[in-house]
């Protein structure tokens, strides 16, 4: 076998001009380079100047909004009986937390949403796997799911009340239903879009059908499943808020209903803040999950 000619490295002095350290470069050199006037310099990212770090820049927008809201209440643009000021909301949050009312309500609501997510998640993912992995499963399941998903699930509330009464069951069922569909759709798409070349390669490695599912198809579908998880968790909170309007005798929803009766906008706003923070917390958990499970993926993090 012939070996190709080795490419000669440039002589040392020639190289120094190309990649010598910038500090050692004589000050006159840039001017000495002619014919570069039309070129654009590539700036190393380490020297790109960041005046304000990102963690400082990010919260500025929301803080400005809060300030605007506070000013609006102070100046009377928004009456205090219509909209409580941020300061009042914070104080109310303090009271509600102190007397344990809020903690209890959160626990009840979390239980509802947790049960719903669990039931809906298991149903959505297992149906999707059955439909994605087996031809018979697809024939039996997919058409029905595709048909049912066009029904807006919130519209099922009256039916659920007739079926399940006004206890916990219709609330959990509504959350489960809201969660199941996005999870099903994303998982199914994930399974079906696994790279056929990888499946083929894995088959030549002698993987069994089970090994193929475990090592190739499930990990290949995982990014899609996680997209489904994030989306469906968002839906879960939405479903919870709707569900808790059904005669809630406990939970955050009940706090809000009571507050509505007494025109306590501060309590309503405090509850909304709690909903928002719970949603944020869950989103953060999913992000962590993604980072752990998808660490193999070189992610684009923006610039």
């Amino acid at each position: 076998m012939t070996s190709p000619a080795v490419v000669q490295a440039p002589p040392a002095e020639q190289r120094a001009v190309v990649d010598g350290p910038p500090v050692a470069r004589p000050a006159a050199l840039p001017e000495a380079r002619s014919g570069v006037a039309h070129l654009v310099p590539v700036v190393p990212s380490s020297t790109r100047r960041r005046t304000v770090p990102r963690w400082v820049r990010r919260p500025i927008g929301p803080l400005l909004l809060l300030l605007l809201w506070q000013v609006a209440v102070w100046t009377g643009t928004a009456g205090t009986d219509l909209l409580a000021s941020p300061a009042t909301v914070v104080r109310t949050l303090g009271h509600l937390t102190a007397d344990g009312e809020l903690g209890g309500a959160i626990a009840v609501s979390l239980e509802r949403v947790g049960k719903g997510i669990l039931i809906g998640g298991i149903a959505g993912i297992s149906l999707a796997l059955l439909a994605g992995l087996f031809r018979t499963g697809e024939d039996l399941i997919d058409a029905s799911v595709q048909m049912l998903r066009t029904v807006p699930f919130v519209g099922l509330i009256p039916l659920f009340i007739i079926w399940f009464g006004i206890g916990e069951t219709p609330k959990v069922a509504l959350v489960a239903l809201g969660v199941a569909f996005p999870l099903y759709l994303n998982t199914y798409a994930g399974v079906r879009n696994v790279d056929a070349g990888l499946v083929e390669a894995a088959r030549t490695l002698g993987l069994s059908r089970f090994g193929l599912i475990r090592h190739v198809i499930l990990p290949g579908a995982l990014p899609n499943v996680l997209v489904g998880v994030r989306y469906s968790l968002g839906i879960a909170w939405l479903a919870l808020v709707f569900a808790e309007q059904i005669n809630a005798n406990r939970g955050i929803g009940q706090l809000m209903m009571d507050a509505q009766e007494f025109q306590r906008t501060d309590v309503i706003l405090a509850c909304l803040v709690v909903y928002a923070f719970l949603g944020l917390a869950v989103d953060a958990i999913v992000r962590l999950l993604e980072r752990g499970l998808l660490s193999w993926r070189p992610a684009f993090s923006g610039s």
Binding site: L198, E200, A201, P219, L222
Partner: peptide, 13 residues
């Protein structure tokens, strides 16, 4: 055993 034109490695392993 087979080697294809593209390496076809599982990116998650």
């Amino acid at each position: 055993a087979v080697a294809f034109q593209s390496p076809r490695l599982l990116p998650w392993k």
